[in-house]
C-alpha cells in the first residue's frame, strides 16, 4: 500500500541513512533536481550503496535524470544492479520516452541475470504534452505501475503561476486520474510545497483524494503523517468493509447467492473496494 511518498536528496548521506525511518510508504531517492550537475556521479554511487547496504524496509523508488540529459544511462547502469523497486523517469512526455527507458532497463536486467521486468516504472509527468499523452504513457509498458504528476514544472510549461488553490493544475489532475484508471494503474499527486502550512496541505490532499488519486508525494517528513491520515481508510470505511465480508460469509453459510448489505446489493466492485480498504487498514497498523 502506497499512500505517501517522500523525496530524499540523493547526495545527502545523513538523509539516506534516515530515509527508512521517516514514515512514508515509499521513499524517492532523487538523482535529478536535488542533485547539482557536478555531484551526479557521487549521488548515484551513494544511492546505490545505500540501497545495497542499509537494509531499507520501505519501497525504494529512484528518480533518474531525463532522457535528454547526459546522465540517465549512467544512473540506470549504477542503480539497476541493486534492484530498486521502481525507477521514476522524469519529464516523460510520450509513450516512447517510457519505451526507451524500459528497453534500456531490460538490457541491464538481462546482463545481470535478473528477470526482465523486475524493476517497475512510475513516470513523472510534468509537461503539457505529457498530460495530454497521459493515457498512452500509463498504458505504454507493463513496467508502468503508476503515474505521477509534477505540478511545479508543469505550471512553468503552461506559463502560469503555481498557486495554493491549484486551479491551474485542476485539468491536469483530472486528466491524470482518468488516464491512470483507464490504464489500470495508480496515480500520485504533486507535493505540497509550503512546509509549514499543514491546513493547506490537508485540504490539498483531501481534494486530490476526492478526485481519485491513490496518494500524494511530499518534500517534508512532517507532511507524511497528514498525507497518510488523509489517504487511509476511515473507521467507518473499515467497519463497512468488514461487514461486507461478514455478510458474504453468512450468505455462503446459508447457501444464498445474491446478498445485500444496508439495502445495497454486494457486487464485484463493492467486494474489490472492501478488500482494498482492509488491506490498507492492515498495512497501517503500528506505524506512522
Amino acid at each position: 500500500m502506497r499512500r505517501s511518498m517522500l523525496f530524499f536528496p540523493g547526495n545527502s548521506a545523513n538523509m539516506l541513512l534516515n530515509a527508512d525511518f521517516l514514515g512514508s510508504d515509499s521513499m524517492i531517492l532523487d538523482l535529478e533536481d536535488a542533485v547539482a550537475p557536478t555531484e551526479k556521479d557521487s549521488a548515484r554511487i551513494l544511492v546505490r550503496n545505500a540501497i545495497r547496504d542499509l537494509g531499507y524496509t520501505r519501497e525504494v523508488i529512484v528518480r533518474i535524470n531525463p532522457v535528454d540529459s547526459p546522465y540517465w544511462e549512467k544512473d540506470l547502469q549504477t542503480i539497476i544492479p541493486v534492484k530498486p523497486d521502481m525507477i521514476m523517469p522524469t519529464k516523460v512526455s510520450c509513450a516512447d520516452d517510457v519505451k526507451i527507458i524500459s528497453d534500456y532497463i531490460a538490457g541491464l536486467e538481462e546482463q545481470l541475470g535478473m528477470e526482465v521486468g523486475t524493476v517497475k516504472l512510475i513516470p513523472l509527468i510534468e509537461t503539457a504534452l505529457g498530460v495530454e499523452n497521459a493515457y498512452q504513457i500509463a498504458s505504454s509498458d507493463p513496467r508502468v505501475e503508476a503515474i505521477f504528476l509534477g505540478g511545479e514544472d508543469l505550471t512553468a510549461d503552461l506559463r502560469c503561476k503555481r498557486t495554493k488553490e491549484g486551479n491551474e493544475i485542476f485539468y491536469a489532475r483530472s486528466r491524470m486520474v482518468m488516464a491512470a484508471r483507464a490504464a489500470g494503474v495508480d496515480v500520485y499527486d504533486t507535493p505540497w510545497t509550503d512546509v509549514e502550512d499543514y491546513e493547506g496541505l490537508i485540504k490539498d490532499a483531501e481534494f486530490a483524494k476526492s478526485l481519485g488519486f491513490t496518494g500524494k508525494s511530499s518534500i517534508s517528513p512532517r507532511h507524511v503523517t497528514f498525507i497518510n491520515e488523509v489517504f487511509s481508510p476511515t473507521e467507518e470505511e473499515i467497519q463497512y468493509a468488514r461487514d461486507v465480508f461478514a455478510t458474504i460469509e453468512k450468505a455462503k453459510a446459508e447457501g444464498k447467492g445474491v446478498v445485500s448489505l444496508r439495502g445495497k446489493m454486494i457486487d464485484a466492485p463493492i467486494v474489490a473496494r472492501a478488500a482494498q480498504v482492509l488491506e490498507a487498514a492492515e498495512a497501517m497498523k503500528g506505524g506512522r
Binding site: A13, D41, S42, I45, L46, N49, R52, L54
Partner: peptide, 11 residues
C-alpha cells in the same frame, strides 16, 4: 557509516 565511506572513496 561504511556504505557512505565506500561511496565517497569510490567516487
Amino acid at each position: 557509516v561504511d556504505c557512505t565511506i565506500k561511496a565517497r572513496v569510490e567516487t
